[in-house]
Amino acid sequence: MGDEINYWKLFSDSFNFRYTNPQATVGMMRQASALAKQAGDLQYGLYVDHWLLQTLINVTGDYDEALDLAVQTAVEARKRTYREQMERVCVHEDLISAYLGIDPIGHAKLIEDAMTYMERETDSSIECYYCLLSLRANFEITFGATEKATHTIRRYYSETQSYDRHHFGSAHVELCSLMALRGDWERMLPYTLNGIEVTGDNVQMQGNVATLWAARALALRKLNREVEALVAFQRAKAKADLMQIPIYRVYYDMMCDFHLEVGEVEAALILREHQLKDVIGKGQPYWEAVFRLAYARLLKQIGRPYAEQVSQIRQLSMKLKKPEVVLDPLSAFEAEA
C-alpha cells in the first residue's frame, strides 16, 4: 500500500492535513522521508525531516519523537551533501526548539550557547534569523526575564514588520505575552487587534488569532470593559474550538486568567484539563509539571483532592536536570494554607 505514491506528492499532500489531522500529517511526512531516503534523494529527505520536526514541535507537541529526530537530523546535516541547503540551518534550530520544549531551564546553558552560536552564524537575509529571534523571545519569557525579553521582542517586532505576516503575527503574540507578564493591559489592546489583522485568515496561524483574542479578552476584563471582553472571549473560544491541534500555552494562560479574574474557577479548571491533555505523555516533563501545578492550584482552590497531581509532579521532576525548578514551587504550594 502506498508504493504508487511519490514521496514529494505524499509530502505536499501532508500539508493539507496539518491543522485538521496532524497525526495523519506526521505519518505521511515520516513515510515521505523514508521513501525519499530509500530513493537516494537525501536532500529531499532532510527537507521533509525539517518539516516533520516543525510539525512535531509546533503542531502535535510530540517531543519524544522530535528529540530523536532532531538529533539525528542535526547530525546528518553536517555532511557535505547538504552544504547548499537552507534546511541545514533550520534543523539546528529545530534541535534548539526541541530542547526548549523538553526542559528549558535544565538545559538553559546548552540552549543559550546554541542560540548564541546560531545568531552569530545567521544573518537577516534568511528566515532562520527571524525564527531565532522568536526562539530567544520564547526562551526569555519562559525564564521571566522581562527586560531581556523586551529587548528581543522589540527587535523581533520591528524587524519582521516588513518581512512577512507569519513572523509579524507571531511577534504580536510574543509582545502581548510580555505585556501580560508586565500587566500592561492598556498598551496591549491595540497590538491584539493589529496582530489579528496581520494574521488574518491564514490557516497556519489560527492559534495566533485565538491567542490574540484571548489576550484582548483578558486585557479588556482587566480594564473593566466587560461587554467588549465577553465578545473577545467568544471570538477566542470560537477560533480555538475550530482548531484540532494543541493550542499555545499562552492561550490557556490568558483564558484561565480571564475566568479567574471574576472567580470562575470551574471554567479555568476545564481549560487547564484541556491543556494537560495536550502535553501528557509527549515528552515535555517541564511543561507538564508546570501545567499540573497550575491545575493543582485550581483543585485546591475549590477544595478538590490534588494529591495525584503532586505525585505526578514529583515523578516528572525526576526527568529534569534541575528538579528543584518544579519541586521548590511545589513545596511552596503545599505549604500554603
Binding site: 539525528q72 547530525v75 553536517r78 539546528h92 546548552l110 550557547d113 546554541a114 548564541t116 552560536y117
Partner: peptide
C-alpha cells in the same frame, strides 16, 4: 551510531556537539 561517529571525528560545532 552516526552521532557517536560525528562526535568522535569532531564534525559538529561546539554547542551542538554538547547537545548531542
Amino acid at each position: 551510531i552516526e552521532a557517536r561517529r560525528a562526535l568522535e571525528s569532531d564534525e559538529l560545532s561546539d554547542p551542538f556537539a554538547e547537545i548531542v
